[in-house]
Design a protein around this nucleic acid. Structure first.
Lengths: 346, 346
DNA sequence: AGTGGATGTGTAAGCGCTTACATCAGTGTG
DNA sequence: CACACTGATGTAAGCGCTTACACATCCACT
C-alpha cells in the first residue's frame, strides 16, 4: 500500500486529524475542506488501512461466522442472505468453518479472541460445555443462528414445529408405524425435529418404536448426508417389522433413503412414505415431501441482530423464530387424500 | 479483550519484547523463559491482537476470496478444500461475495485496498477491463481460481477439455444435430466449455447450428441456474428443427432442462440426450451424464499457490490445470453402446 | 471594545504489537 | 586477567490511525 493519512494531509495542506475526520463521517469539518480532502484522496486512490483503523478505534467492522461444514446447502443459503444485508454496510465477513462439533470450539475461540471481529455468528451448534463457556466470557456479541440458548440472542427456524408438522402429516394420513432417520444426536436441530415429531405422535396415540429411530452418528460430521440416509433406511427395511412411513431429519438423508427404497423395490408414496427436511432444490426433483425454511431471511435477520448488539442498541435477549412449512409431494402421495405432488415418478 | 502483551510480560516477569518473541516462533529466547511465558499466557487465556500485530508487521495473515454467488455448489466445495488447507495455518478467510460480474470489481477493490488481507483469490471471473486494471496494480498477490490470465497465477479446471469430452461423447454416439444451453456468455468457464465443444464437433464434421446455442443471460447472475435451463430447453424444443442432443454448461441448467423435457414427453437418453457439467449430487439422482471436476483439490491448491506468492517463494507465473472426467449416466444412455447408467428412470 | 460560545483545525498521546539496537551477563581466548 | 564473543533480554521507536484537548477564528452579544 504505502499511502497513508500523512500523504493525503500534506498534499491537501491540512493536518492528519482533519483527514481522519473526513474519513469518519462528518465530525465537524467545513464543507470546503472536506471536498478538497476527498478529491485528493480520490485522485491518489487512498483507502484507510483497516488494521490501523481498528487498532486505534478499538473495534473492527468485521463479523465472523463460525460454521460447521461449509459445503452444506443450508449454510450457503443463509450466508447469502447475510452477505446481501452486509453489502449495504462497511462490514466484511470472516468465515471459520469447522468439520465437527469439537472443532467448532476451536474455531469459535479463534473468532472470539483474536480481536479480528466485532461480533460473531455461531451456526447450528449446541451451546453447552466448552462452547457455552467461551460465549459466556466473550467480549464481543454473539448471535446464534439455527441454535438456542436462553441467554444469547438467537435466530432460528422452529425445528420442533417442523417435526410436529411431519408427525401431523403422518397422523392425518393414517400412518401406524413411523420410523426416523436421525442425524447426529448431538445436533440441536435434529434433536428438536425429533422431539417435535415424537411429541405430536404421542398426542395422536401413535407409538414410536425406539428401534425404528436410526441415528447417523459419525465423529467427523453432523450426519446430514446421503450415505447415512441410505444406510439407515437399509437398517429400517431389514427390521423385523419395518415402518410404513419415515421422517428424515434432512433432505440429504432422505435422498439417500430414497435410493435404498428404490433398490428394495418399494413404491414410495404408497407402500412407504418419506418426509425430508430443508427443501433443497433436489427435493423438488425427486418428489420429496419436506419442510421448508426461509434460509435467506434467517441470514439477513441474523446480521441485523448482531448489528443491534454491536451498536449497543439492543436490550434484553432476542429470540427470533421462523416457522417451517410442509411442502407435500409424491413421496407421501397416499397420505394426502387425492393430492398429487409435483415430483417426478419414483 | 483487554489482555495485552504487557499483562503477560509483567506477570511473567519479563519484558514485552520477550513475550512478543515467544509468540513469533523462536527468535532467540531461552527454553526456560519460553515455557514460563507460554504457561502464563495460557493460564490467562491470552491471544495476540490481530490488528495490532498486522499493523506492526505490515502484513496480515488473512486471505480474501472474491466469489460470485455464494450459494453455488461449486464455490462451496472449493471453499471447503481451501479451508481444510488453511486450518493447518494461522490464516483466516475473508469472504467477499458478489451477485454479478460488475459487483466483482467492487468487491475485489474492497478486498485489495483495505489492507485487510495479504492475498486474494478471485473466483471465476474474466480478467479484463476494470478487473484487469485492479489486479494489475494490486500490491498483494492474486490467484485466479477457475479463471485464466497469462500474467496471473491461476488454478482451474480445463473447461475446454470438458467441452471436448462432451462433443466426443456426442460424436461417438452418432449425434447429428447438437444444441447447447449456455450460461451467461461473459462467464469464462461457460465460454471455454462451449469453445471446446464447438472445436471438437468441427473436427468430426458435425455442424453446430448457432440458433441452437441458447444463452441464459441475466444481468444479475452468471446464468448457471435451473430456470435458465428450463427456458432454454423450451426454446430448443420449439425450434423448427430441434436438436437430438444437448450440452448444458452446468448441471443446474441441465436439471431445469430435464424438467422441460419431461413436460414435453421426450424420452431422455433415447429420443434426446443431455450432458451437464459439475457433477452435483443431484446429477447422480436424476441420471445425468456430466463432467466432474476435483473441486476440493482446486481449493487446496489455490491456497498453496497463494501462500507461495505471499512468501515470495514463487517465481514465474504458475498455471495449474485439473482435468474434468466424463461421468456417463442415463441421460445419454443410447450414446454409449450397451452401457447402462446409474441414474433413476426418467 | 470585551466577553463567551460556536466552529474548524492542529497537536500529541495512545491503540497492542514488532523489531532494530543497546545492554548485560557468561564464556573462552591470548 | 583484560578481550572480544556469543547468547538472552530489555528499551524504545515506530506501524497508520483515532480522538481528547488545546488553540485560533469569527460572530454575536452585552
Amino acid at each position: 500500500m504505502g499511502l497513508t493519512i500523512y500523504d493525503i494531509a500534506s498534499k491537501a495542506g491540512v493536518s492528519i486529524a482533519t483527514v481522519s475526520r473526513v474519513f469518519n463521517g462528518s465530525d465537524r469539518v467545513s464543507p470546503a475542506t472536506r471536498d478538497m480532502v476527498l478529491s485528493v484522496a480520490d485522485e491518489l486512490g487512498y483507502q484507510p488501512h483497516a488494521s490501523a483503523r481498528s487498532l486505534a478505534r478499538r473495534r473492527t467492522d468485521v463479523v465472523s461466522a463460525v460454521i460447521p461444514m461449509i459445503s452444506n446447502y443450508f449454510f450457503a443459503e443463509v450466508l447469502r442472505g447475510l452477505q446481501d444485508r452486509m453489502a449495504e454496510t462497511e462490514f466484511d465477513l470472516l468465515v471459520f468453518s469447522a468439520r465437527s462439533l469439537d472443532e467448532m470450539a476451536i474455531q469459535l475461540d479463534r473468532a472470539l479472541h483474536r480481536g479480528r471481529s466485532a461480533g460473531v455468528l455461531v451456526f447450528s451448534a449446541p451451546i453447552a460445555g466448552e462452547l457455552e463457556a467461551l460465549v459466556g466470557k466473550a467480549s464481543q456479541p454473539v448471535v446464534l443462528v439455527d441454535g438456542y440458548h436462553p441467554a444469547i440472542d438467537s435466530i432460528s427456524s422452529d425445528n420442533r414445529k417442523g417435526g410436529t408438522l411431519a408427525a401431523e402429516h403422518f397422523a392425518q394420513g393414517g400412518v401406524r408405524r413411523p420410523g426416523v432417520l436421525m442425524a447426529n444426536r448431538e445436533s440441536v436441530p435434529a434433536s428438536d425435529r425429533l422431539a417435535g415429531f415424537e411429541a405430536r405422535l404421542r398426542l395422536h396415540g401413535i407409538p414410536l418404536d425406539p428401534s425404528l429411530v436410526i441415528e447417523n452418528s459419525h465423529p467427523l460430521n453432523d450426519g446430514y448426508n446421503e450415505q447415512g440416509g441410505y444406510a439407515g433406511m437399509k437398517a429400517l427395511l431389514s427390521a423385523p417389522n419395518p415402518p410404513d412411513a419415515v421422517f428424515a431429519t434432512s433432505d440429504a438423508q432422505a435422498v439417500g433413503a430414497l435410493e435404498a427404497l428404490k433398490e428394495s423395490g418399494r413404491m414410495v408414496g404408497s407402500d412407504i412414505h418419506l418426509v425430508g427436511y430443508d427443501d433443497l432444490p433436489i427435493a423438488r426433483y425427486v418428489g420429496l415431501t419436506t419442510l421448508r425454511q426461509p434460509m435467506n431471511d434467517i441470514g439477513g435477520r441474523a446480521f441485523e441482530l448482531l448489528m443491534n448488539r454491536m451498536s449497543g442498541t439492543a436490550n434484553g435477549t432476542v429470540h427470533t423464530v421462523f416457522s417451517p412449512t410442509l411442502i407435500q409431494r409424491q413421496s407421501t402421495r397416499a397420505l394426502a387424500e387425492g393430492t398429487v405432488g409435483e415430483g417426478i415418478a419414483l
